[in-house]
Simulated scan of single mutants.
Amino acid sequence: MGSRGMVSGRGFRRSGRVRRTPTSAPLPVSGARTDSRSNYADGSVRSEQSSFRPAVCQVVGYKNSGKTTLICELIQLLQSKGCSVAVIKHDVHGFETDRPGTDTWRQREAGARAVAITGTEQSFIFESRSRELAELIKAFMHYDYVLVEGFKEEPYPKIVLIRNAADLELTARLPGVAAAAIWEDPSGSIARCLPEGQRRFGINDISEIAEYLWRERSFFQNFNI
Rank of each mutant, 00 (worst) to 15 (best):
W105H: 12
Q49H: 08
V92L: 00
G2P: 06
I225L: 14
E121T: 13
N222L: 11
G188I: 07
H142C: 07
E153I: 02
A41H: 01
R17H: 14
S8P: 05
L70E: 04
I117V: 15
S15Q: 07
A41P: 07
T120V: 09
S65C: 13
A210D: 06
Q76P: 02
V45Q: 10
E121Q: 13
S47L: 09
D42R: 12
D167N: 05
S123M: 13
H142L: 10
E216S: 09
S51K: 15
S24C: 09
A114M: 15
A181V: 03
N204L: 02
V92P: 03
G2K: 11
G176T: 08
T69N: 12
Q76E: 08
S50R: 08
A32F: 03
R200A: 14
R46H: 10
S218K: 06
K81M: 12
G66Y: 12
F201A: 11
S218D: 14
S38L: 05
S3C: 00
T69C: 02
F223G: 00
M141G: 06
I203F: 13
W183Q: 13
K158H: 01
N64C: 14
D144P: 06
Q198W: 04
R192C: 08
E196L: 06
C193K: 08
C193N: 12
I88L: 11
K89P: 01
P157I: 08
Q221G: 07
A114I: 02
I71K: 06
R53P: 01
A166R: 14
V177K: 03
M6R: 06
Y62W: 07
R33T: 11
G16D: 09
N224Y: 04
S44I: 02
P195L: 11
A179E: 08
G101S: 04
E211R: 12
P26H: 08
G188F: 06
R37M: 01
T104P: 02
I162R: 05
G61Y: 10
R19N: 10
W214D: 01
L194C: 08
R199D: 11
D42Y: 12
Y62N: 14
T69P: 03
G2M: 12
H90E: 13
A165Q: 15
R217I: 02
G43F: 05
R14S: 07
L77P: 00
A114T: 12
F201I: 10
G9C: 10
E121D: 15
Y143S: 12
P155D: 07
R17L: 15
R17A: 13
L27A: 15
D98P: 11
S84C: 07
S218I: 08
S3M: 00
S65E: 03
S3R: 11
G119S: 15
R14M: 14
P186C: 11
C72P: 00
A86W: 07
R53I: 05
Q107V: 01
D91I: 05
G5L: 06
P28V: 10
G16F: 01
A210F: 04
D205G: 05
S47R: 03
E153K: 09
P157C: 06
I75D: 00
F220H: 03
P28E: 10
S44T: 09
C57F: 11
W214A: 06
L213A: 08
F12H: 15
S36N: 06
V45W: 07
R4F: 01
